[in-house]
Write a protein that binds this DNA or RNA. Structure first.
Lengths: 195, 195
DNA sequence: TTTGATTTTGAGCGACTGTTCAAGTTAAAA
DNA sequence: TTTTAACTTGAACAGTCGCTCAAAATCAAA
């Protein structure tokens, strides 16, 4: 009764996500996107409604991908902290050069959307809160397994982790500082355990 | 023999700086700027050459302002660390709501300019390095005055400070987290002294 | 008061932006 | 094979972008 869509939605979102992550929302033109996902404007607009709609799905997909990545490291690590550490090392050191940006796409979004009532600002806030809740779960596990003391609550550990992680990624978003990455990650996890 | 310029260059740069800081480079249009600084395009372009030229001066001015602010807090504090702490509290808590953005303009610049060979990317790298050097001087003083141990070098303290400070500002760039600011700043300076 | 270098003005240029939609293509259902 | 709803195409629209430049305004020097 109909024709079928020719593109794989997941794949299109992933490619768009890479471009948005690298260049930011405003600096990415719809023509950039058309070329990257190999679709004509009509198809993009019937599938995603607008540039904003596509960005929206891209950012959501990014956070899903990030959580999936963490889950992967957690499942092949003995401890929660070990898994998180492997994740941080992977992001800050191993995949730094093949990543669209050293900085978290969610953090970039938070910094780019200044208008407090815009959809994308609200979205970035929402996803950020969700990610903090996810981290809080993980630190709860870490406390329950005795990896961390309970002098801090799980959400306090989560906040500390976010501050450190965001700070580190921002710091290493520049050339010629690679040699400081490992010691600073060491320091970060040493501090978490000592809190 | 001539006409005189009608605008005060310093003031124009400061106003432009606020707008760029708030909205970012790409989302700020030349018409936004024209209105904000109350100048017609011809005057702006004869004074600054281009939108990029004006942004360039704005970002440089921002770092000068930031250093000036730190100097102010240092001169009315007993210790280097006390001065830095007053500065951090001022930025993260006191002036948060009247500031164009919770996030450092330099950090925003670092995150916005993705093309590794663009002028503005190079500029943001340069100013960031200068700021690290400035912080290193300050931590050198702190070590020499016995405020900090010399288990870490001055530049290592500077790096730590930047990571914490950037991380904190990113974290507090959202609503309903004000109550966590003071304890997290306490934590930050407690950690610095314990390093 | 006249001169003339300098600055300001703002209409408008060409390029690019996000987006639309009529026409063409496709393939499952009849 | 024909029908027909769904999908794809890409030319093109209206608006905005960064920026230019001829003309008007300005004011120190002559």
């Amino acid at each position: 009764m109909a024709n079928k869509v020719k593109f794989e939605r997941e794949n299109v979102v992933r490619v768009a996500s890479q471009l948005f992550w690298q260049k930011g929302f405003h600096a990415t033109s719809t023509r950039d996107l058309q070329e990257a996902v190999n679709m004509r404007p009509g198809s993009i607009y019937s599938a995603f409604g607008s540039k904003e709609g596509l960005y929206c799905e891209s950012l959501k997909d990014y956070t899903v991908q990030m959580k999936t990545q963490i889950e992967g490291f957690l499942s092949s690590a003995d401890t929660v902290l070990g898994g998180l550490r492997a994740f941080v090392e992977n992001v800050v050191i191993k995949t730094k050069d093949c990543s669209p940006s050293a900085i978290c796409m969610l953090v970039k979004a938070n910094s780019e959307f200044a208008e407090k009532d815009s959809n994308l600002y609200e979205l970035s806030l929402d996803l950020t809160a969700q990610f903090e809740a996810y981290l809080t779960q993980l630190f709860n596990q870490a406390i329950n397994k005795g990896e961390l003391s309970n002098t801090l609550t799980a959400v306090e550990y989560a906040r500390f982790f976010q501050v450190q992680f965001t700070g580190l990624r921002g710091y290493f978003n520049r050339p010629n500082v690679e040699q400081f990455a490992e010691p600073m990650i060491n320091q970060m996890f040493m501090l978490i355990k000592k809190l």
